[in-house]
Amino acid sequence: MTLILQRSLLLALAAALVGCSIYSVPQSGRAPVETRPDPTVVTPGSPAPGGSALPEAEPNVVRAYSALVAQAEGATARGDYDQALALLERAQRIDPESAEIYLHLARTYASQGQMAQSRATASRGTLYCRNESECDALHALAR
């Protein structure tokens, strides 16, 4: 008797799970097709074609890391590259998409003689540059 009860309970549980499925068949009988927006159409909140896709840095974020960057510049001037890199890495944790920080990191690596690391850091920084001078400086170091 318990075997029949167990099988009935298992069957009821399976039926309940099938009924809870999140998949539903589209009304047209075909799978939906994902569409992407036309890149030439400008919508509010999106960059204009050919414009920078990165938003401007928040002023509070810039203020938060600018003191660290200034301290790092002082450490670099003293030849304390390890301290400068530590400060710049802290600044980068505050704003990981700051091309300015990547530029300082790349210059510090170059000053330290780590040219491969400098090129790699500058190359990564080019993904985040927001103005021509930053982009030019990063591209020069990335070569």
Rank of each mutant, 00 (worst) to 15 (best):
residue 80 D to Q: 12
residue 86 A to S: 15
residue 99 A to T: 05
residue 98 S to V: 02
residue 67 A to E: 13
residue 73 E to A: 10
residue 92 Q to E: 13
residue 89 E to A: 12
residue 81 Y to N: 11
residue 85 L to A: 07
residue 66 S to G: 04
residue 98 S to R: 04
residue 87 L to G: 00
residue 93 R to M: 13
residue 64 A to M: 05
residue 90 R to P: 06
residue 93 R to K: 15
residue 78 R to E: 12
residue 81 Y to I: 07
residue 77 A to G: 09
residue 83 Q to L: 14
residue 72 A to V: 01
residue 75 A to T: 08
residue 87 L to S: 01
residue 62 V to M: 00
residue 91 A to E: 07
residue 71 Q to K: 14
residue 65 Y to D: 02
residue 79 G to L: 04
residue 79 G to F: 03
residue 69 V to C: 02
residue 65 Y to M: 02
residue 94 I to G: 01
residue 98 S to P: 03
residue 74 G to V: 01
residue 67 A to P: 08
residue 65 Y to A: 00
residue 94 I to T: 01
residue 94 I to Y: 00
residue 99 A to V: 01
residue 84 A to N: 02
residue 63 R to E: 12
residue 81 Y to M: 12
residue 90 R to E: 15
residue 85 L to I: 13
residue 93 R to H: 10
residue 67 A to L: 09
residue 85 L to P: 07
residue 89 E to D: 15
residue 88 L to Q: 03
residue 77 A to D: 13
residue 92 Q to N: 15
residue 91 A to W: 06
residue 94 I to Q: 06
residue 66 S to L: 01
residue 98 S to K: 00
residue 91 A to F: 02
residue 98 S to C: 04
residue 83 Q to P: 08
residue 68 L to K: 08
residue 92 Q to W: 10
residue 92 Q to K: 14
residue 67 A to R: 14
residue 63 R to V: 01
residue 64 A to R: 03
residue 65 Y to F: 15
residue 75 A to E: 10
residue 85 L to S: 09
residue 66 S to I: 02
residue 80 D to E: 15
residue 94 I to P: 02
residue 79 G to Y: 05
residue 96 P to V: 05
residue 75 A to S: 13
residue 67 A to F: 12
residue 88 L to R: 01
residue 79 G to D: 07
residue 87 L to C: 05
residue 93 R to D: 12
residue 70 A to F: 09
residue 71 Q to I: 07
residue 82 D to L: 09
residue 90 R to G: 03
residue 95 D to P: 05
residue 91 A to H: 04
residue 88 L to W: 07
residue 96 P to T: 04
residue 62 V to Y: 03
residue 86 A to P: 06
residue 71 Q to A: 14
residue 70 A to C: 00
residue 87 L to D: 14
residue 73 E to C: 10
residue 79 G to S: 06
residue 74 G to E: 10
residue 96 P to S: 11
residue 74 G to T: 07
residue 77 A to C: 05
residue 63 R to Q: 12
residue 68 L to A: 03
residue 68 L to V: 03
residue 74 G to F: 04
residue 76 T to V: 13
residue 78 R to N: 13
residue 89 E to V: 09
residue 79 G to P: 09
residue 99 A to Q: 06
residue 99 A to E: 01
residue 86 A to K: 13
residue 67 A to T: 14
residue 81 Y to S: 10
